[in-house]
């Protein structure tokens, strides 16, 4: 196999004296949909935030396409091809849907390609097209999640990081969002998905890392994880 698109080695994150992430190793290869699952407080979100530059790692190395990405200012990371859909979606509530999507392409200047991508996103999410002139704060939670994903795609990232996209959504909407994520991945996007809903994440992903107490406790193909008694007991409620 060629070198991974995202290579994480020994990543540690500290909040004051508390070590939330204690040396995480993780690889994501081009075109893969990889999931990071684990209980609440296992350090999943901290790991993702450190990858996206929102937290400064205390130790470790993050390589994007072989180039160091750790400790770079967050507004530079999107220019290196890394987009994060944050936990809680983070849409701009008083910007319209269209303006939110435009913000996703803020770091780009290829006007024609941006317009084409906007059409693509509207094609993917009809709902967003219908509501393009509406303030994002008036959308439902599921629609906001679609907007957050569409906005991240507008940056044409090489790696899409998703933080708990199913959180707080109605079951039907969760199914829809997971279908969207699968579709995005099937079109060639490399995705790292952090989820508490382990079953859904494992059904969508090719490979999985299981996080426990700030460390990766093990990793395998998603299929194998679904059958693993430890995962079944701890995360699938069986």
């Amino acid at each position: 196999m060629s070198a991974p698109l995202l290579q994480v080695r020994g990543l540690a994150v500290r909040y004051g004296g508390i070590e939330a992430v204690k040396g995480v190793d993780l690889d994501v290869y081009q075109g893969e949909l990889v999931t990071l699952i684990g209980a609440n407080g296992a350090g999943k979100t901290s790991t993702l935030k450190a990858l996206a530059g929102l937290l400064r790692p205390a130790a470790g190395e993050v390589l994007l396409d072989g180039r160091p990405a750790g400790g770079v200012a967050p507004h530079q990371l999107i220019r290196q091809g890394l987009a994060l859909v944050p936990e809680g979606r983070g849409v701009f509530p008083r910007l319209t849907v269209a303006e939110n999507l435009d913000m996703g392409a803020y770091a780009r200047s290829d006007t024609a390609a941006i317009a084409a991508d906007l059409e693509r996103v509207f094609g993917m999410f009809e709902r967003l097209h219908e509501r393009r002139g509406q303030k994002a704060g008036t959308l439902s939670g599921g629609e906001q999640q679609m907007l957050a994903i569409g906005r991240a795609l507008m940056g044409r990232p090489r790696l899409l990081l998703l933080d708990e996209p199913s959180m707080g959504l109605a079951p039907l909407m969760v199914q829809k969002i997971m279908a969207v994520i699968r579709q995005v991945a099937s079109e060639g996007m490399t995705v790292l998905l952090v989820e508490q809903n382990a079953r859904l994440a494992l059904q969508a992903a090719q490979r999985a890392y299981v996080m426990e107490g700030g460390r990766i406790s093990f990793s395998d193909t998603a299929q194998a994880c679904l059958g693993d008694p430890r995962v079944r007991a701890a995360y699938l409620g069986e």
Binding site: H75, L77, I78, R79, F92, R94, L95, Y106
Partner: peptide, 24 residues
């Protein structure tokens, strides 16, 4: 304008505006 949009986005959520590539 693009600058104005970035200003409004930053006012509403500076961390996410940063993720979009805005130098807050």
């Amino acid at each position: 304008t693009r600058l104005g949009r970035a200003m409004r986005a930053t006012a509403q959520n500076p961390a996410v505006a940063g993720l979009m590539g805005v130098d807050v």
